[in-house]
């Protein structure tokens, strides 16, 4: 029971977007899919949901190919940035339509969410603002009876209050009915405490694939006088650095050398997910091989 992404390659106009991607998405887990603009996150989600077909490779859900397969496609829902609904349709009609296609749609929960977010269900989809379009799609994503929910930029156009409400609802619905969520977003700090597992997509490849706690456990911020810091980090996987006056901070991803004494002037802390992501995707030359 999982989604298997096998040797996916996607080439658009001779430009490689994804290169030999292999991933496993397990049931009942919250994933973060991180990557810079144009890294190929949406392309990957579109391939998983069979909206586009990969140049090569295969996606399987619970052992079945998603390609042209109603049963497999019925197990997942992708809430994407692009609007695929008719502008003329009313929100309530689209709830009913989604229920017809997916079955067992949670209308009570949808009504509760619409009220909490202030979404007018009699409004036409085309008349909704960007934020409310996102809210509408989020409500669908939370109410459809699927095992895998993919959220591509789920909080696009949402104000801070609505974003907060969405994160609360996500945790609540996940604890009530565990299922897999894959969240692709640039607001890393906001989801850092929410996700259990992270994929970082960079330079057409997955450069980080692991449990957030494991990854952060080996992401370090080492600061102090420049010479002391450099002496300590010599030979380690330094993925970035910052300078403030005479203080230098170097970011290390990977195991530290336990046999190496830590100078009194040097401080070691753990990096947060956003800083780790920025460092990993900024400094390709310094970072070396980040594959995990």
């Amino acid at each position: 029971m999982s989604i298997q992404i096998q040797a996916i390659q996607q080439v658009f106009h001779k430009h490689v977007v994804l290169d030999n991607l292999n991933l496993t998405i397990e049931p009942n887990k919250i994933y973060g899919l991180l990557g810079r603009n144009g890294a190929g996150k949406s392309t990957l989600l579109n391939i998983i949901s069979n909206r586009i077909q990969p140049t090569s490779g295969r996606v399987e859900i619970d052992g079945e190919s998603v390609h042209d397969n109603d049963r497999a496609l019925g197990k997942l829902f992708l809430m994407s940035e692009v609007d695929l609904y008719s502008e003329r349709s009313k929100v309530a009609q689209l709830f009913k339509l989604t229920a017809q296609f997916y079955g067992d749609f949670d209308f009570d929960y949808a009504a509760r969410l619409a009220k909490a977010f202030g979404l007018d269900t009699n409004a036409r989809f085309g008349k909704l603002s960007t934020g409310y379009r996102s809210i509408f799609k989020l409500i669908l994503a939370l109410c459809v009876p699927v095992n895998y929910v993919f959220l591509d930029e789920p909080v696009l156009g949402l104000d801070a209050n609505h974003r907060d409400l969405f994160y609360q609802e996500l945790i609540e619905t996940y604890s009530e009915r565990p299922r897999t969520f894959v969240i692709s977003t640039h607001l890393i700090e906001e989801i850092a405490n929410l996700i259990e597992h992270v994929f970082v997509l960079d330079n057409h490849h997955i450069v980080v694939n692991g449990e957030v706690s494991d990854i952060l456990a080996k992401a370090y911020l080492i600061s102090g006088p420049q010479t002391d810091v450099q002496q300590y980090t010599d030979g380690l996987n330094v993925i970035g650095e910052d300078h403030l006056g005479s203080i230098t901070a170097e970011y290390v991803y990977g195991a530290l050398d336990n046999n190496r004494p830590i100078p009194d002037t040097v401080q070691i802390e753990h990096l947060d997910l956003q800083k780790l992501f920025v460092s990993l995707t900024n400094t390709k030359e310094a970072s070396g091989n980040h594959e995990h």
Binding site: D70, K75, L84, Y85
Partner: peptide, 12 residues
């Protein structure tokens, strides 16, 4: 667009 959003395959 509508059908692929709702998990309907091309053949269906």
């Amino acid at each position: 667009k509508l059908f692929i959003q709702n998990g309907i395959s091309r053949t269906t």
